[in-house]
Write a protein that binds this DNA or RNA. Structure first.
Lengths: 136, 136
DNA sequence: CAATTTGTACATTGTATGTATACAAATAAC
DNA sequence: GTTATTTGTATACATACAATGTACAAATTG
């Protein structure tokens, strides 16, 4: 077990086994956040599928599927015996309707948490926080 | 076919059959948005499961499952022969960690659309738009 | 070249999704 | 008040998806 990458993935990678979102997609979503936000930089090495699987309590093939998905998005280079290496990745061409679809997803996410009782105040607080983080 | 409710549900209820999100959950998410935002108000009647199923091109049982889910969240009253009626609904007690989980979901959504090429500018624009809408 | 460490391929199993069909309840028609 | 019709419900089924088990193949190390 190599401490080098553990320290990088551990903090954010929490799997919710009771969620309806499949585990491999939770892994993808978490790692993609770190990749987009720069917490994982080109050249960094991710844990091996077996290591991360053990850590998360899932089968290594489940992790492998997540890694493959990220590789297909251009984020990772997968090689035997070397693990997964983060790549330099150019932003793809923006799809038409992307903004409209984002708006809809955002609305639905907000509706969901409002329905769960989260206050409008807390929601705007988080929205503003993320807006600020983006403009840095 | 009653024109009364069709005009209310049509505009926003678009199903993407190619999406990985199951149809019944797309229906739930769309309707929940309308409920939270007040586009559907207490006393309003939704289309029958067969009507909406026909309109969306899915089996009526799929719509029924969506309605049942919303009913279990306290939004709808389902009665035979009357269709689904929107209820008055008190906001439930906020769960601990709700804000943290919202923050994570929001980050992941943003990371996803950034990875798809949506510009930071467009994202902040949408975030600010939703923030403004909430404070009204 | 042998041993080990890694990702891959494929078969198997359980769960989720969507549909078909029969049913039950409520209302309307007569 | 009985019958027909319109609705949601229940159950069974087919298919697709998710997660795992196991065997394998490639790359590195000694």
């Amino acid at each position: 077990m190599n401490a080098e990458h553990k320290s990088e993935t551990d903090p954010t990678l929490k799997i919710d086994h009771s969620s309806t979102v499949p585990v491999y997609r939770q892994v993808v979503d978490n790692l993609r956040s770190m990749l987009v936000e720069g917490a994982l930089k080109p050249g960094d090495t991710l844990p091996t599928v077996r290591e991360l699987g053990l850590e998360l309590g899932v089968h290594f093939n489940t992790v492998a599927e997540a890694y493959r998905l990220l590789a297909s998005e251009g984020w990772l280079d997968l090689r035997r015996r070397r693990g997964a290496v983060v790549l330099e990745r150019a932003a793809p061409r923006q799809q038409p309707e992307a903004e409209a679809r984002f708006n809809r997803s955002l609305r639905q996410l907000i509706a969901q948490v409002r329905a769960e009782g989260l206050s409008v105040r807390a929601i705007t607080h988080e929205l503003e926080r993320l807006t600020r983080e983006l403009s840095i």
